[in-house]
């Protein structure tokens, strides 16, 4: 009797495992969780999927928004080989219950990614199967671009805030490498913007603005740009919009560029048994130069295409 019972139980367990295994083998997929359904993410997924399709990725790619995912994460994660979380919000959501499935965060600011993963480190066992493609640009790229565009620049000003995108030491190191002296000013609740701006424009030749959600917002950006005009000091920024708004130049990656870069990374992972690559910056990026402003400031800067070529050439050398 007991034998029969044990046997029956074993049969049941075996059946359950078989079922699960069969399902897993039969319907493996790639889950893309996007933070939102707006145009940025649409551009990203569109490019991401088109690249995968172009390379015969072979697995179904399910795209789901973070809030849809949040209702039944288990169902989405089932038979998922890799979760690509697009944006900070999606990354945070997927990280919340997922321990096993490798997570590849993309289009996420480096600082945000560090924050999310730091949370995981402090509260729960770290998910070893996590990596990211950062939205922002490496500070060395910024310095190199400035160097290429404005060889006369010696002092680069930079704000340091509570959540520093780039550690100050790293920044100083990279600046040194590029031959710049770095002028920094604290910015935050205890450090008034006006004072910081005044100081930094008086001490530097160009101000490099890095994305820092703690200190940089639209209003701060506008203030910084207006001040740069009043001091006739150019601003190097991290987006096309910044350049249009009055920054002299910027290097940035578009969603499409990151989507393409991420897709290529996924394709590489598929080939590499879904082993996650190192955290990286997108190697595809764009440069924007405000020639009007340059002319106003009496500067002569080469075209952005030439700059891009020279910058990429420089990075390859590095």
């Amino acid at each position: 009797m007991p034998f029969l019972v044990i046997r029956a139980l074993m049969i049941l367990v075996a059946l359950f495992w078989l079922e699960k295994s069969a399902a897993a083998n039969g319907e493996e997929r790639l889950l893309v969780v996007i933070s939102d359904n707006n145009s940025i993410y649409k551009k990203f997924t569109s490019t991401f999927q088109s690249v995968l399709n172009a390379h015969d990725f072979g697995l179904p790619v399910d795209v789901v928004t973070a809030w849809s995912y949040r209702r039944t994460p288990a169902e989405y994660l089932e038979k998922t080989l890799l979760v690509v979380s697009v944006g900070a919000k999606a990354t945070e959501e997927v990280m919340r219950g997922n321990r096993e499935i490798p997570l590849y965060a993309t289009l996420i600011p480096r600082q945000a990614f560090k924050g999310i993963t730091a949370q995981g480190q402090s509260g729960k066992p770290p998910n070893t199967k996590i990596s990211a493609v950062f939205l922002d640009q490496p500070v060395s790229r910024q310095f190199n671009l400035i160097k290429l565009a404005l060889p006369q620049v010696r002092r680069i000003g930079m704000f340091t805030g509570s959540s520093v995108t780039v550690p100050q030491n790293l920044a100083e190191e990279e600046a040194g490498k590029a031959g710049f002296s770095l002028v920094t000013e604290k910015l935050g609740q205890n450090y008034p913007l006006a004072t910081a701006i005044d100081r930094i424009f008086r001490k530097s030749d160009i101000l490099l603005v890095l994305p820092d959600p703690g200190i940089i917002d639209t209003k701060t950006a506008s203030t910084i740009l207006m001040s740069s005009y009043r001091y006739r000091r150019p601003v190097a920024a991290y987006s096309e919009a910044y350049v249009k708004a009055g920054a002299l130049l910027a290097v940035y990656s578009t969603p499409e560029q990151i989507g393409r870069y991420t897709a290529n990374q996924v394709l590489a992972m598929k080939k590499n048994h879904w082993i996650l690559p190192e955290e990286s910056y997108s190697t595809e990026y764009s440069i924007e130069v405000n020639h009007w402003l340059a002319r106003s400031l009496g500067l002569t800067i080469t075209t952005k295409h030439k700059l891009l070529r020279e910058l990429k050439k420089l990075e390859q050398v590095d």
Binding site: L225, M226, Y229, K244, A245, G246, N290, H291, W292, L293, S296
Partner: peptide, 10 residues
């Protein structure tokens, strides 16, 4: 500033 900086949007 817009004219100076070429900020057409602005």
């Amino acid at each position: 500033y817009g004219v100076f900086s070429g900020n057409r949007e602005q």
